[in-house]
């Protein structure tokens, strides 16, 4: 049976280093299998998160040979075994222990985004009508499993640590899913520009590249949102039209 050598980062907020482990590799194995096997047989206290083991929950995010990946969806057969495989925690968030980072910032950011606010129901029984082609895009965004790999790879968060000024690709996609939801009536454009920092994104598309759900984060989500921000704030004719419309809507009520 083939073997592989792993260099797994062990440590905490104070610091740490790579430790070497060797384990056997069987057919079809993924990196998470190897890490779990090392944990069960050689390092019971090796900290890592995982749940579904099928790319559906987004728990086991880490950097494998320097690339942000879900460990459960990274096949050993994709990796060169002639040199050690490095596994380390995500870089955009503070390390707690070994492969575990403190991702609580993401949960705080989400809480600040205005919630879904539907229009009144379309039918007397309290239901709505939507056509499939009108929700395809929103469904694409809602495939997000919140693995935060896109946040990890985004240079605004990873290199510049601008967590206070920028919500990151995950939450731009969350806003996009709400803004493009056919039933939603809320407006989130003002915050996008002012407090959520959409302007910091310079569309390098790194987030799209690492998304395990293949969501076209930049092209389908962030760019259309940027266009809405531009329309709202920098288009004088649009601004006059909307102001007049708002006034006349109020007058009608």
């Amino acid at each position: 049976m083939k073997t592989a050598t792993f260099k797994i980062w062990r440590g905490d907020a104070k610091g740490g280093e790579f430790h070497d482990y060797t384990t056997e590799i069987s057919e079809g194995m993924v990196v998470l299998d190897a890490v779990n096997h090392i944990q069960a047989t050689q390092a019971n206290d090796l900290a890592c998160r995982w749940n579904c083991k099928a790319g559906k929950c987004g728990s086991c995010s880490a950097e494998v040979n320097g690339m942000p990946k879900l460990m459960c969806m990274t096949r050993m057969s994709e990796l060169p075994l002639d040199r050690p495989i490095t596994v380390e925690p995500m870089k955009a968030f503070p390390v707690l222990r070994d492969l575990i980072t403190d991702v609580s910032w993401n949960f705080r950011v989400k809480k600040k985004i205005k919630k879904f606010k539907p229009r009144p129901p379309d039918a007397p029984d309290g239901t709505w009508r939507m056509q499939q082609e009108d929700i395809d895009r929103v469904q694409e965004f809602r495939k997000c499993i919140e693995c935060f790999l896109c946040q990890d790879v985004c240079h605004v968060l990873r290199d510049h640590q601008m967590h206070e000024q920028f919500i990151g690709p995950r939450f731009l996609i969350h806003v996009a899913a709400l803004e493009m939801h056919p039933l939603d009536t809320e407006n989130r454009i003002d915050e996008l520009r002012n407090t959520q920092g959409i302007g910091y994104c310079n569309i390098t598309k790194c987030c799209t590249k690492v998304c395990p759900e293949s969501i076209e984060i930049t092209d389908n989500g962030i760019i259309p949102l940027k266009e809405r921000v531009v329309d709202e704030f920098y288009d004088p004719f649009g601004w006059i039209w909307r102001t007049l419309k708002r006034l006349s809507d109020k007058g009608l009520k």
């Binding site: 539907p118 939507m130 499939q132 929103v138 939801h181 939603d184």
Partner: peptide, 19 residues
């Protein structure tokens, strides 16, 4: 189920636009 839709769930649709 209808309540989930009111909270933002986006189910696949029938031809006439229902769940």
């Amino acid at each position: 189920v209808r309540e989930l839709e009111a909270w933002g769930a986006v189910f696949d649709r029938t031809k006439d636009g229902r769940i």
